[in-house]
Design a protein around this nucleic acid. Sequence first.
DNA 1: GTCTATAGGCAGATAGAC
DNA 2: GTCTATCTGCCTATAGAC
Lengths: 196, 196
Amino acid sequence: MKPRPRSGDRGTSSHILDIAEGLVQSRGFNGFSYADIAAALAISKPALYYHFPSKAELGVALIRRYEQRFFDALSAIGDRDAPARLERYASLYAGVLREGRMCLCGMLAAEYSTLSEPMQQSVIHFSDRNEEWLSGVLTQGQRERTLAFAGTPRERAHMIISCLEGAMLVARLYGDVDMFQTTASSLLAGLSTSAG
Amino acid sequence: MKPRPRSGDRGTSSHILDIAEGLVQSRGFNGFSYADIAAALAISKPALYYHFPSKAELGVALIRRYEQRFFDALSAIGDRDAPARLERYASLYAGVLREGRMCLCGMLAAEYSTLSEPMQQSVIHFSDRNEEWLSGVLTQGQRERTLAFAGTPRERAHMIISCLEGAMLVARLYGDVDMFQTTASSLLAGLSTSAG
DNA sequence: GTCTATAGGCAGATAGAC
DNA sequence: GTCTATCTGCCTATAGAC
């Protein structure tokens, strides 16, 4: 019997994921341990194992929740013209960076070869879905004639995601969010037509 | 007295760095241990400590050597017009990726917050120098009228490096070097003038 | 320069009480 | 669900022989 969490109390599992998420995004999956989470929550290490029986399973749960929230945020962008959706899309990344964090998926991409197979699959799944969503926006832009670019929407989506990830990686190195904004803006500016 | 290494024998320190470099570029600095290097060289762990008294000092030596070689490779690009130099520059990244590796500097950028302060400084130093070199090429291109772009050469250099790093990160996820080539090409294509 | 042996700590993970 | 106690193994690093 799982007790239903009271409103405002999302339960211990949720709090564990909150802490773990921040640790992965700032230090990487190989850069923290259960002891770090336990300390942050003032709880014992074995208590964590009740909720997540292994670090790898915690990792999978982490990606799944992040994915859920990320695509909820994309849905919340709503119906706008493509350039406006792109701008909101980029601002999601900027928000993460402003907290001194790397994109979860980008961080795990760096550590990819050290991850368990289920975690690797989860990273790929997230990445594929992200590219698919962005590709849809680019296709919309072509249809609307608000966006113009060489190559397929898929290729362009891949390029934009790659550049945003890289821009986060490097901007975080210098603790300079403005650097990211400059790169993101000039990346997207090149796509807009005068019709937009 | 350090014995002079015979030609072709660059010494144990050098071999240690070779292995460590590959490990960092594929697994990250937090993703390998002295035991991995020892196993690869069929040598004991304490022997490694004779050459590098701590993992952090090995890390600094690693960055320094990588930097030396990288900028030697940039010098070897020689005097050409800016677009040609850019193309060779991007192909250096592609070569690393082809070995299934991430750029050393990009990998360490992801793990930045977990690195010792000397390692952090070394990463920044490398990154600054890289940006400076690329910025010089972009300035040359403006002078020659072979390149045209919005913003300052510095900003553009920063953007190009960011995008190349991100493109490596994501391409490595899918084990697809062509993806990187496509992104790199379209990134550089946008800079060339018809004069070039 | 390289070895064997080992210290001391922290990692991921389990047992069993409450 | 959470605790204390504990296991095993690996990590970084050192001591001291050859």
